[in-house]
Every structure is written in structure tokens, then in C-alpha cells.
Computed example of a mutant assay.
Amino acid sequence: MFTTTSNSIFDRSIQDYHRYNDVHQAISNPYEKSSIEHLLYMKNWIDTVQWHLEDIIRDPQINPAEALHIKRWIDRSNQERTDVVEYIDSYFLEQYKNVKPAADAEINTESPAWAIDRLSILALKIYHMQEEAIRADATPEHREACQRKLDILLEQRTDLSTAIETLLADIAAGKKYMKVYKQMKMYNDPSLNPVLYKGEK
């Protein structure tokens, strides 16, 4: 199943990152560049680095100049994340291009790739909640509370994976259809962000 593959790749990406646990480390994607597996690994790597950038920027003692640098880095990361999600949706569009939707076919609230995006983030939540659930220097109460949260996150991953598989099956059967809107982010576009285009004059 697609989500089984996705979850496995996400877990591998997270494990690979935490060998060094350094936001500056270069990605070493083990999958063929033209493959969907390559995109899934890249997607989660971006998410994993950004997860740790979000931790770093919340340090109350962070130097303001460093905080601004990290904020700009997060902005770039968000754009890269969106781009990769759109590449993944392009994969699905190609997969189902010959499917003729039924007359009563419905559109889903989100595309398959944006659901996969949530699955990638969920893998990160599971990894870090697992860390907290076994943290040696935490209180028993903390570990127990985190274990309860971990159990819910694992259930959520099962439910989300099932929902994604159902969506893909429905698209393949013509019961639902894909319609992808390219993300129209305005803040990175010099022609759409007033702060940027006013600064050009």
C-alpha cells in the first residue's frame, strides 16, 4: 500500500536525520531521483529540518539576528515543502490520468499529496513523543502522559493511512477525482507582497 511505503520512508528519513541531529547537515537521499520514493524522502527531510528550526527559534536566549536568519530559513523551507507536495500530486495526476470519473464523482477536501503531507508531520510527532515517553531524566508522570499521547498519535496514523488508501482507491475507481490548485503563496512573490514591491520603487 502507498501509505505503508510512505510511513516506512518517513521513518527512515527521521532516523537518518537524527544520526547527527544537525539542521546544517546535507540530505543524502537514498532513492532514485526520478522515483516517488525520492520525493517522499525529500518531503520528510524538509519537514524534519524545519521541525528543529522551529525548536531553535523558540529559544528565549536566541540572538535576534540569528532568529531573523532562522525565520528566513523557515520561510524558504515552507516554499520548498509546498513545491514537493505539488510534485507528489503531479505523480498522482499521472497515475490516474486515464481514469474517467463517474457522473456522480465527488472531489475530496484535499488532494492526496496534502494528506501525505500530514502523514509526514505525524511521523515526526510520533518520533519525538516516543523520545519523551522514554526520557530517562523526566518524571514518571511526564513519561506516562507522553505515552498516552503517543498511543493516540499511533492510532491517528492508522486512521489517516486508512483514509488515504480509501481516497486513492476511490480515485482509481472514478468515485472521486483530483483537482489540484497550485499554491498561490503571496508573501514570497515580489509582485504580490506590498512590502517587497513598494521597496522596489
Rank of each mutant, 00 (worst) to 15 (best):
A173N: 13
H128R: 13
A133P: 09
L122E: 04
E106G: 04
L192K: 14
H18F: 15
K71Q: 15
A145C: 02
D83K: 12
R12N: 06
R12W: 00
Y197G: 02
K175W: 06
N21W: 02
K185T: 07
H52C: 04
Y91W: 12
K100D: 05
A26W: 02
D59L: 11
S28T: 12
A123D: 11
A163G: 05
L122I: 04
A102M: 14
R76C: 08
N188F: 04
L124F: 01
Q25K: 06
E144Q: 13
Y31N: 04
A172I: 10
N78I: 05
K176C: 10
L68Y: 09
D11N: 06
Q130D: 15
I36V: 13
Y96P: 05
S6Y: 14
A136D: 12
D170Y: 01
V85Y: 08
M42R: 10
L39S: 09
Y197F: 15
K201T: 11
I57T: 12
R12D: 04
E32A: 14
T166I: 12
S13E: 06
A26M: 08
K198L: 15
R72G: 00
E54Y: 11
K43A: 09
P194L: 07
Q79M: 13
E86D: 06
T3E: 08
D137T: 15
W73C: 01
E131Y: 06
Y17G: 01
I9C: 04
T3D: 04
